[in-house]
Design a protein around this nucleic acid. Structure first.
Lengths: 251, 251
DNA sequence: CGGTCGTTTGATTACGATCAAACGAAGTGG
DNA sequence: CCACTTCGTTTGATCGTAATCAAACGACCG
């Protein structure tokens, strides 16, 4: 809060994707960028736009979503501090989905041209960004499975497991729990359920002593059982490289 | 059938992603590869494996899928002739999903090292492959929306629309229809429905004069209405670059 | 001609949606 | 400081889409 976040967090995160040397790191630090602090719910990218900046999320959370013709929203992914938003939209002419701030966010907007130039001159950076995108895609695939073939209890449990591991990898949230930055309505839009049903499922998970919650703070009471109930395997997150990646037995 | 397919189709397809010059094309043609012809249902990659080859699909169809702990299968994507399978798994140590032949397929297996070397030496090829992966991810996102927030009629219609445009872009299937290479059970696994329900939805689409089918051959009777019923917009396919991309009004 | 696979039909069930309303916490303005 | 609003959560009652169960049918293949 008191310390202005820097792009160091982004550098460190990118290093978990592919090894970088000091010149690579300096290249990232030398990127031109505009610092911005935005309120929750602000749109960072709108479907149909042609983005000119790639945003680095320095603090706070963001999410991608689409809205159907019937007005239903589907959340596609949730992003955590240190992540590069919109490598997705950066190389394609027109954004095919929205990116919105989930909480208050601080971000560094880097001109796409500068980012592309850096990627061209530093192969390891290109490689790290490439791998980062591949992992994003791996998470999209898992979400297809989650909404397509899992029942509501499994689905919510799975999402809670994913958040636990990703928050931990991001250096947030401690061993056994974390504070969900999402409302139950947003949880519903991420899982293809209704807010009412999400509420009932969360209560059920509490009744089964899998989680415990006070407001948005989720305590994972029994990681291993939650993992099994959520049909969760961390394989798709591809977080084997450095950093603390296990909560007890993460697999 | 009678003509042995070559990687020319792959070259041409990659050119729709980013412009390539003659040296780029020659680089692709010079890649070492093993030609293989495999029966339908053969596994090309299994979850948990470390793939050493990237496959180019010369003819036939393939698909990616995962199986849940409860044994339910979810199809993640369907691939058409000319596509590079497994750029996804090539840069990540362990495959997080299966890739399987949907029909009899012919493919060229390229050692990953050779592909990476080519990408490193020819930036435009790297760029084209990168963009190709981004479009794959865009399709994954749309599928999340499809299974997460659309009802069964919309869901099936949407899938039929996507196949129509992609087959057309691949130079297969004519103006108004195509032959589905999938069983209704596979259609069910792609949409998160049951085979029984898929059957009923297909019949309903026929009753509404949106499609007409004889066996697997689907005729699109009214593209524009099917598009609306399926809540379909082609934006996420990012097929604006060269080649025939519109069926009447594709948007 | 028998066997397998995929499609089709019918009857019943159930999971999650929908509708409706109350409740609680946080923020705003008088 | 306290009404008042707003937003998110919670509860209850009912509904409906798609799942499930079961079986027959049709096509292709050896």
């Amino acid at each position: 809060m008191s310390i202005t976040p820097t792009i160091e967090r982004v550098v460190r995160r990118l290093e978990t994707r592919a090894p970088l040397d000091e010149a690579d790191r300096d290249g990232l630090r030398a990127l031109p960028f505009v610092y911005r602090s935005l309120d929750a719910a602000t749109y960072l990218v709108r479907e149909g736009e042609t983005p000119e900046y790639c945003m680095m999320l320095l603090s706070g959370f963001a999410y991608r979503h689409k809205v159907t013709g019937q007005g239903d929203r589907q959340i596609l992914s949730v992003h955590m501090p240190g992540e590069l938003l919109d490598l997705q939209n950066s190389y394609l002419a027109v954004a095919d989905h929205n990116v919105q701030a989930l909480t208050r966010v601080e971000l560094a907007s880097v001109p796409i041209a500068a980012l592309q130039a850096l990627a061209a001159s530093r192969p390891q950076i290109a490689r790290a960004m490439w791998i980062d995108t591949l992992i994003d895609a791996a998470i999209f695939r898992e979400w297809i499975v989650n909404v397509g073939r899992r029942d509501s209890i499994t689905r919510i449990s799975h999402l809670l497991c994913e958040f636990a591991l990703r928050l931990r990898a991001a250096g947030l949230g401690d061993e056994q729990g974390y504070t969900l930055p999402m409302t139950q309505e947003q949880l519903a839009d991420a899982t293809g359920l209704t807010p009412v049903h999400v509420n009932r499922v969360l209560q059920e998970l509490g009744r089964r002593s899998l989680i415990d919650r006070q407001k948005r703070a989720v305590t994972i009471v029994d990681w291993d059982r939650l993992r099994r109930v959520g049909d969760f395997s961390s394989r798709y997150l591809h977080i084997e490289r450095g950093g603390p990646t296990t909560i007890e037995s993460a697999a």
